[in-house]
Design a binder for these strands. Sequence first.
DNA 1: ACAAGGGGTAAACGACCGTTAACCAGCCTG
DNA 2: CAGGCTGGTTAACGGTCGTTTACCCCTTGT
Lengths: 197, 197
Amino acid sequence: MGAVPADGVKQTRRDQILDAAAELFARHGFHGVGIDDIGAAVGISGPALYRHFRSKDAMLGEMLTSISERLLEGGQARVDAAPDAATALQALVRWHVDFALDDPALITVQMRNLANLTDPDRRRVRALQRRYVEVWVTALQESVAVDEPTARAAAHAVFGLINSTPHSAHLDRDQMAALLTRMALASLTTAGVLATA
Amino acid sequence: MGAVPADGVKQTRRDQILDAAAELFARHGFHGVGIDDIGAAVGISGPALYRHFRSKDAMLGEMLTSISERLLEGGQARVDAAPDAATALQALVRWHVDFALDDPALITVQMRNLANLTDPDRRRVRALQRRYVEVWVTALQESVAVDEPTARAAAHAVFGLINSTPHSAHLDRDQMAALLTRMALASLTTAGVLATA
DNA sequence: ACAAGGGGTAAACGACCGTTAACCAGCCTG
DNA sequence: CAGGCTGGTTAACGGTCGTTTACCCCTTGT
């Protein structure tokens, strides 16, 4: 799990810790996992983590801001690269689906543990998330006829749909990707028709 | 928030506590809210809760089992009352949408705090959830041509879509219900086409 | 050769928090 | 009017857990 570790390349200890923590946070929740658990997961024990992070809160903070940045950056890039609005939307869906399938732990943590962030960290993450939603909202408005509040709600709904992936490991990766992409696009294009019926 | 309190009728103190706890758990997570917080939310303080519940875990347990029971019971009832498979699926969607819109806190807790349950409670809740999923899976297989694993994954995806409702309060209740219903049905009917493409 | 520092350890500290104990006020019943 | 539930209260206990401290090894550059 956790995005493929680049090549055979040794990832820095920080990243190793972050990956292990993400997995644990996803499974047991932020408060449900102790500093000792995280240490044990990477073969060191307990307080050694403080050689790499200022606090447990800092781990979650760094984890969530980095997810949000990657999501925003990747999404924006794909929209910019798309020739027209319709393919931009498709690219966004595929991007988010790939992300969710490759990093289910990170997605889960981002969905569930926003509340456990420190106040400044939460502000930062929320700002990034808002910008990401904004990317979706404009892509939606440009490709399907829909008012802005509906577009916003539809975006959140599709996030929920795609992010549900950690809960169902019944299909293999490619089938799952195809299914989620199809469902997401279907729901989005329908969202436009008779928007304010 | 929290399902309409029947009529003007006074709800029992237990239910009052459960409602307040649900709201708090949804907002801050199970471990993020203290026994004192829950007490304060209903005007009593701290340990008085132990006159009504055996433990904090017991509150969560009762909360989640009751949600799961209501969900299953209501879903099954609607399927039984439906004349054919297609309307059964529509009824399921509407049922789940209504539930999510009327009890956003409960839905949120059920999605996020399964891991915080005690082992026996978790087994109970999971069993109920499995049966609920089963209701959806059979309804799906009878109305759209789709293999079972795909139906299962699609059901989870639609739960994610509908349960996203707490994150977006941009639309009023009826518009939101219409939007979610439309999106859910669109994604589901599309899930069947070329299922194992 | 050696000082420096990065990265690890185990032990102690301190706060928080779920739970229990001891106590008490009102109400309803006999 | 006595006496026992019912449902509160505050204070104390105990465990868990994040964090700090003190110590140590091993590597590396001078």
